[in-house]
């Protein structure tokens, strides 16, 4: 469980995070999206007691970040922006060190378990400095997990990895998801966020928008249906707008894009009306919006504001 209310942190005159509230229940993944400098890393550092907030409060795994930072650090796993491995120590030594610093019951057993889980057991004797970026990231992930923390923070886990390595890390994260832990994931990779996150907070020093990926899409674009016509019939759009359940209708190049309150229930009615109006329909499709569309539109609105 992670929850925060009104978190605020400034660096000198610059606000890094302002009045941010969020909540991540056990077993859920919250995505933090936002442009460079939006305050994602700062948020993670506040919640892992690496920095203290200027205002606001937060509970992480039941511990107050202001009054019990030591207990918070015991309960969090952190994958930092850069892997931060001891290059001169072996893979095994790197992981065992953190298991011991967290004072887990059987450090060797845990280290072995997580090295195997990340597919690094065969490389345990190699120096961490010799690992490829993807493998280094997996070791960093093992390090964040080795004490089995109830709260996990992943700061851009796939940044800088080639597509295949990124996919492997993503698969590992998906496997972790089933476990009973609260996860906060910062990322610039929007398909990744869409796939892995239950909820999303779009951040630009303050929270710009929040919801499940689906909710965000509906909120930004509504439910849209695209009707492909055999020939351009621009006169249809104004006529559609008069229908009570249609919120918006646009026509371009033989394609009608119609926004309705509830696409699933209103589609049959829409088609019936269109046929009555003499539309020559080729096909009817739901308009798919991606999280990327949502994000880019949000950022456009931010720039305009």
């Amino acid at each position: 469980m992670i929850s925060a209310q009104g978190l605020t942190r400034r660096f000198g005159d610059r606000a890094a995070v302002t009045d941010l509230s969020l909540s991540v229940p056990e077993g859920a993944v919250l995505g933090l999206l936002g442009p460079n400098g939006a305050g994602k890393t700062t948020t993670v550092r506040l919640l892992t007691c690496l920095l203290s907030p200027d205002a606001g409060s937060a509970l992480v795994a039941g511990h107050d970040i202001a009054t019990d930072p030591q207990a918070v650090r015991r309960s969090v796993g952190l994958l930092t922006e850069s892997p931060g491995l001891y290059k001169r120590l072996s893979v095994w030594q790197n992981l065992l060190l953190f298991a011991q610093l967290h004072e887990v019951a059987k450090p060797e057993e845990k280290a072995q378990r997580y090295l195997s889980l990340m597919g690094l057991w065969d490389r345990r004797k190699d120096l961490a400095g010799t690992l490829s970026k993807g493998l280094a990231q997996r070791l960093a992930l093992a390090r964040a997990l080795v004490h089995e923390p109830p709260a996990l923070f992943l700061d851009e886990p796939t940044a800088g990895l080639d597509p295949e390595a990124a996919r492997e890390v993503r698969i590992l994260m998906e496997e972790l998801r089933s476990e009973q832990r609260a996860v906060i994931l910062c990322t610039h990779n929007l398909p990744e966020a869409e796939r892995l996150c239950d909820r999303i907070v779009v951040l630009n020093t303050r929270s710009v928008s929040e919801g499940t990926p689906q909710e965000l899409k509906l909120r930004m674009f509504g439910a849209r249906t695209v009707v492909r016509l055999a020939r351009p019939q621009p006169e249809l759009a104004p006529a559609l707008r008069d229908l009570p359940f249609v919120k918006e209708a646009e026509s371009s190049d033989g394609e009608l894009s119609v926004e309705m309150e509830k696409a699933e229930t209103h589609n049959p009615e829409l088609v019936r009306h269109l046929v009555e109006m003499g539309a020559e329909i080729l096909h009817v499709l739901p308009q798919e919006r991606t999280l990327e569309d949502v994000y880019l539109k949000l950022m456009e609105d931010e720039d305009a504001a």
Binding site: T48, T80, S82, G84, L85, F98, L101, H102, A140
Partner: peptide, 14 residues
């Protein structure tokens, strides 16, 4: 140099 301070500081090490 190795960027290890942040992970180290996120442990219970005082």
């Amino acid at each position: 140099e190795q960027g290890t301070l942040e992970p180290l500081l996120a442990t219970p090490l005082t």
